[in-house]
Simulated scan of single mutants.
Amino acid sequence: MTRALDTAVAALMRETAEKTLLKHYQRLATDDVTNKAADDVVTIADTESEIMLAEGLSKILPETAIVGEEAAHADPAIFERLSNKLCWIIDPLDGTNNYAAGKPPFGILLALAEKGETVAGWIYDPLTDRLCTAHRGQGAWLNGERLTARTSGADVPVAAISLVFADPTRRASLLEHIAPHYTLVDIPRCAAEQYPRLALGQNDVSLFERTYAWDHAAGVLFLNEAGGKAARPDGSPYRVDTHLKSGLIGAASPALFDDLAERLARI
């Protein structure tokens, strides 16, 4: 079942990327981009990708509910499906701001959840054809090869700390009490890029304020299955049906997670 599911989902992601994301990449007209919220946009590629993915996933597992980012934005009642027995979670174009500016990174994130817990996840980068996959209890895989998370090896751990959605007080506290203990790097504003960076030795830790299911369900499972650790700052597991809570740590190792969690608990 796992292999057949991976094959079907991978084919759907690649076909969708080719027919929607790559079709419009660096070719967007002015009216192809609209403001969705402050500092957030949606493009024609988001919409087309979500429609195609939802239709394809409903054929792969017809009994499964679907929560797509754009559909949920239009109708918040869709969030209730995250607690269903089975639920597909779709981020049709992660990193939309980058995409709209005509630059990488961006990607597709898909996850399958069971009663609020992620049981499978797929992270696809259309520009490099990088596909990260994970199934609960079965490890993490990168383009078909088993992956074990590794740290950067830097003397001072490398951190990508998202301050975009932190309020001014929180932002100041993080900069004063957390940032000095790390080598800070820019965030990619793309979870489909950030989680692979944590597993591949590019970044050691990352801190997220906003934790929507479509952004994090696949990545959290992937990083944990690779041997890193992604969880709430208090150590509790990330659940898709509590995705409106704030705060999430991703780390290349449990030790790095614990160190950052302890620092956060003191501020």
Rank of each mutant, 00 (worst) to 15 (best):
A166D: 04
R136Q: 12
V220G: 04
V185D: 00
L223N: 03
V164A: 13
F208R: 08
I161K: 05
T133E: 12
W214L: 02
A199F: 11
W122M: 02
A166C: 15
D204F: 04
R150T: 14
P188I: 02
T133G: 03
L175F: 03
G201Y: 06
V220Q: 00
T148H: 07
F165Q: 11
A192R: 06
H216W: 07
A199E: 01
V164C: 11
A120S: 12
I178V: 15
V220M: 06
F208L: 13
L131A: 10
R146E: 02
A154H: 13
A191N: 09
S206T: 15
E225Y: 09
R150Y: 03
R210W: 10
A199H: 07
E193D: 13
A140K: 09
L184C: 14
N224G: 07
L147I: 12
H216C: 06
V156D: 00
L221N: 02
R146C: 07
S206E: 00
C132H: 14
S206F: 13
T151Y: 04
E225F: 05
R189C: 08
G144T: 03
D167S: 05
N224D: 11
F165K: 12
A217D: 04
A154E: 08
R130I: 08
Y182H: 03
E176S: 09
T151C: 14
V158K: 12
Q202Y: 02
L207F: 14
I123A: 07
A149C: 11
G201W: 01
L175M: 15
R197H: 13
V220N: 01
W141F: 12
A218S: 13
A149W: 08
D129H: 15
D204R: 00
P126N: 03
P126V: 03
G144V: 08
E176Q: 13
A166T: 13
G153N: 08
L207K: 03
L147W: 09
R130N: 14
I187L: 07
D167P: 07
E145A: 14
V158T: 07
H216L: 10
A160E: 00
Y195E: 00
Q202S: 07
A166R: 06
D167R: 10
G219A: 09
A134F: 11
Y124A: 02
Y124V: 11
D155H: 06
L200D: 00
Y124G: 05
P157R: 03
L163M: 08
L163H: 08
G153D: 03
N143A: 09
R146S: 14
T148K: 11
D204T: 04
A199G: 09
E209H: 15
V158R: 14
A217R: 05
L163R: 15
H181G: 09
A218D: 00
A134L: 10
Y195N: 06
